[in-house]
Design a protein around this nucleic acid. Structure first.
Lengths: 220, 220
DNA sequence: TTCTTTATTTTGATAAGTCAAAATGAAAAC
DNA sequence: GTTTTCATTTTGACTTATCAAAATAAAGAA
């Protein structure tokens, strides 16, 4: 059985590598886990011993097949628990993440299966994030919108779902059209602001709502 | 925040002291927690430092008011979770204890409150064990029947709930009538057998079902 | 009272995670 | 091609929870 710490390391490697199997930097992992970088180095070496990750010193870390399996399992638990908390217990959107963060490590597969059935086998959680299947398949629409995608990664706009003339005009004028490259520099949930960075253009701030209308995919 | 280990120590002290605040022996605690006695001594001294228990060397431990509060909270979580697993997720009676054993440490008070409401504020769990109230009151019917009471303690029979003539005759013949002193020497869930010890009488084995029909209370 | 038994405590180690701070390496700036 | 900067790794230490095995104390037997 993987410990809580191990499950968290693997989950965050998965999250930071955006579903693909890209190298994740030690610094990013330390940041995500709220530990100092030295701790990550130590821990990652132990995980590599156990063949859960591959560690390339001074470069980064990525999941092995075994590590990915564990990480997807944890993510599935996290997102199903969130769905349960919101849809069955009617909990507040803002509170569920912290709850799920603890419950994801305590819930067994058999409880999870029943929860899944109770919820009608949902494919996305209340935030719209995809729920990995029981077989460990993560529906590919990994970062649906500028409101939910990871920060800092190169993305390409796929679709703009809001169809009002006003918004479409604005988007067109700002170069936010399908195929355009973009990355999210910052996302402030409190202020409800998403800051975009584009090559050769000034930074652009969007409301979270507007960001949610713009579907993106990884640029490469 | 009390760690998982601390919560377990306190919960088991509560359980072994049978709701009253009797001294619990280090050996019994070690047994219940599946650790060696030396570990219990070490840990109990730390808990005493934190004013969660009172430790009388070579005698035993008992809970302080603060410790009891924590222990009742954990027990409430355990029993509400069990109730949820059985009544909502339709899980098997035999599996829920192990599940609850982990979930009781991961669930927050706010989730618990909603679960409690969802279940209609039950007062006992599926085994009939009383669920401590939110205010930390444990309904006094602590060990309801010979099927659920703690082992080895002096008890007095309060009531026999099964009213078939056949069973009442058997009980009467064996001296199992209200007021009679008794203690449970052993309980084997797998075999479904409860072994009774009475002064001046031979040991008596009962089925778990029959044991469940006999209500008892602490003898003194 | 003295001896024996048994529970409890002590002592010394260990594993898992973590931090602080110094050392190192690689890329970026000059 | 040095130098500077910044991420990463190393080192030594600490905390929590545990075990094995030796030491001790209290109770019961002789």
């Amino acid at each position: 059985m993987a410990s809580v710490a191990v499950e968290n390391y693997l989950k965050h490697v998965l999250l930071l590598s955006a579903g693909q199997n890209e190298l994740v930097s030690m610094g990013a992992l330390a940041e995500a886990l709220s530990v100092v970088p030295g701790t990550v180095t130590t821990m990652v070496k132990a995980l590599a011993q156990d063949r859960l990750v591959v560690h390339t010193p001074r470069q980064g870390v990525k999941l092995t097949a075994a590590g990915r399996r564990v990480a997807l399992g944890v993510l599935r638990k996290h997102r199903l628990v969130e769905t349960f908390l919101v849809h069955v217990l009617k909990m507040d959107w803002s509170a569920v993440h912290a709850e799920a963060e603890r419950l994801e490590h305590a819930i067994s597969d058999s409880v999870l299966d029943r929860l899944d059935a109770l919820l009608g086998h949902p494919t996305t959680d209340p935030h719209g994030d995809p729920i990995p299947s029981r077989q460990g398949k993560l529906p590919s629409q990994v970062y649906a919108t500028l409101a939910t995608c990871p920060l800092g990664r190169p993305l390409r706009i796929v679709r703009v779902t809001e169809q009002t003339a006003e918004f479409l005009q604005f988007a067109e004028h700002q170069g936010l059209r399908p195929g355009a490259p973009v990355r999210v520099a910052d996302r402030n949930l409190t202020a409800g602001l998403v800051t975009l960075r584009r090559r050769g253009r000034p930074a652009l701030a969007l409301s979270l709502a507007a960001a949610g209308w713009i579907l993106v995919e990884p640029a490469r």
